[in-house]
């Protein structure tokens, strides 16, 4: 029993400082930072004594990501986590620029659970939408030539038919 407490205490002491691209500092437990495969590798090779720069991620995004990692390092019940994830995504989805940056950052930091969660949410946003609706929602430029577009639309003709 005593040894376990000591271990936990030791764990707690292991804090690491992460610095965002806009120089915002975040002090988190090592096990939280470890949720990112990339940061884990950096910690493994360089230690946790000096601050780790996360150059490609801005402060607001990193803050949100660390909030996710912290929640997911607690080992709570699955139902609790699913509910939390849903609320987390509902909030993120409201601001598409933020959502997009979150997606890129989760890729960059290699947090597989978050990458999947965002992908599922994104897929849900594409459901029942026509190509034009998708372009409008995500401000995507249609760079297909008329011939290419016609060819693709003909190939996928079945998808445009009423069920």
């Amino acid at each position: 029993m005593a040894t376990i407490i000591t271990k936990e205490q030791q764990e707690k002491e292991k804090m690491v400082t992460l610095v965002s691209s806009d120089s915002e500092k975040f002090v988190v437990e090592q096990k939280v930072a470890e949720k990112s495969h990339v940061i884990k590798m950096v910690m493994n090779c360089c230690g946790i004594e000096s601050p780790i720069p996360v150059r490609r991620v801005k402060g607001d995004i990193l803050k949100s990501i660390l909030e996710y990692c912290e929640k997911h390092s607690k080992g709570e019940a699955q139902e609790v986590m699913e509910k939390w994830d849903k609320e987390y995504m509902d909030k993120a989805e409201k601001d598409l620029v933020f959502f997009h940056d979150l997606m890129l950052a989760s890729h960059f930091l290699h947090i597989q659970e978050l990458v999947d969660l965002i992908a599922v949410t994104f897929a849900g946003m594409l459901k029942m939408k026509s190509p034009e609706e998708i372009r409008q929602k995500f401000n995507i430029n249609n760079d297909l030539t008329k011939e290419q577009e016609e060819h693709i639309m003909t190939t996928f003709g079945w998808a445009f038919q009423p069920i």
């Binding site: 997606m103 999947d116 897929a123 998708i134 995507i140 996928f156 998808a159």
Partner: peptide, 27 residues
């Protein structure tokens, strides 16, 4: 635009119809 890797990731969770519609968006 979402990068190619993200799109691949997203695509895994799409049904055939949504996948087909998404294929017509851009190159």
């Amino acid at each position: 635009e979402p990068p190619w890797e993200s799109l691949q990731q997203i695509a895994q969770f799409l049904d055939p119809k949504s996948l087909a519609m998404s294929s017509c968006v851009s190159k």
